[in-house]
Simulated assay, not measured.
Amino acid sequence: MREGAMVQQATILVTGVNGQVGYELLRSLQGLGRVIGLDRAALDLESPDAIRRVVREVKPAIIVNAAAYTAVDKAETDVQGAQRLNVQAPALLAEEAKRLRAALVHYSTDYVFDGTKDTPYIETDAVNPQNVYGKTKLEGEHAIVASGCDHLILRTSWVYGMRGKNFLLTMLRLGAQRNELSVVADQVGSPTWSTTIAALTANLLAQFTAASDGAEWWARHSGLYHLTANGATTWHGFAEAIFETSDLPTKPHVKAIPASAYPTPAKRPGNSRLSNEKLAQVFGVRAPEWRQALRLCMAER
């Protein structure tokens, strides 16, 4: 890995820039190097040849992989599609990073856990994904570690923002159309703003660029971390908070229902809370409380 002073002028390759997190990364990473953002048209992550060709042409010092197959229910029947984006693509990016002596930042999910624990999950807790999406994301994690490249694997949860498809935008759309909405109230997690994820990622990489010895920095920091907003709520509680901070002229009534009343093809964990203590102890950073982040997000709207 290059010396920290050199990385400031080096290239950072960001994938999935049309997605929620990738779009925000393009803004948050400014100043840390030459940022190159690629969408699906510029880099087809389902093509191994394209991955190898593009990475070798760009020669990045850091790859930030914000692309993923995130259609959780669709993945139950499109297993191969989920595997291509969530397993094969990160495995190849990791291999190329290792070859270039670069580093890979990759995002994973709370869905690697089965949700039966009563307290927030820590990085060393046993994994037991209950759906195809979670299984493929876990396989992607394992592939990155097996490559031996310098890496940060950041597990997050309940990602939302003002782009793409997510719970926040769905609630705002439905809330403008209906007087009452039924929302699951027995699944718990931490709604995490895409901007928070991007900003904290930039914070971690800024610490690397400031290091006097980049190789030594990665030797101490490479690994798996949980990165979510602080605090937790249910989907029902999240929906109520969205409408409380929205500018809808008429707020819909949000009816609490059990997950059993809203069956989905993919099973979701009952507890999606992730502990951020390792991230705080190692890097000295903490995400904002989820309600505070939601207010900032809604202010942008």
Rank of each mutant, 00 (worst) to 15 (best):
Y69F: 15
A67K: 11
F243M: 06
A97C: 14
F167H: 04
A102T: 05
N230K: 09
Y69P: 01
L92E: 03
A103R: 04
P265L: 11
L85G: 00
M162H: 06
I242N: 00
M171K: 09
P269D: 07
T170H: 14
P129D: 08
D150V: 03
T116D: 12
R34C: 09
R220N: 13
H226L: 12
L227Q: 08
S272E: 09
A146N: 10
D118V: 12
L26K: 06
L174C: 04
V14C: 10
V64G: 06
G140T: 07
L274T: 01
N18Y: 02
Q83S: 11
P60V: 09
Q80N: 11
A241Q: 10
A143K: 03
V112W: 06
N65L: 05
A42G: 11
A41Y: 07
A202Q: 03
Y23C: 11
S147T: 10
A82W: 01
V282H: 02
I62V: 15
G16A: 13
E57Y: 11
I122L: 09
R178H: 15
A261L: 12
G37L: 06
T170P: 00
F283P: 01
Y160S: 00
G223A: 14
N86A: 13
Y262S: 10
P265W: 08
A71D: 09
R99P: 04
P288W: 07
T192E: 01
H106T: 04
P258Y: 07
P252Y: 03
N276E: 03
E141G: 09
A299H: 08
S157C: 09
G223H: 02
T234P: 01
V285P: 00
T116F: 09
V132T: 15
P120H: 12
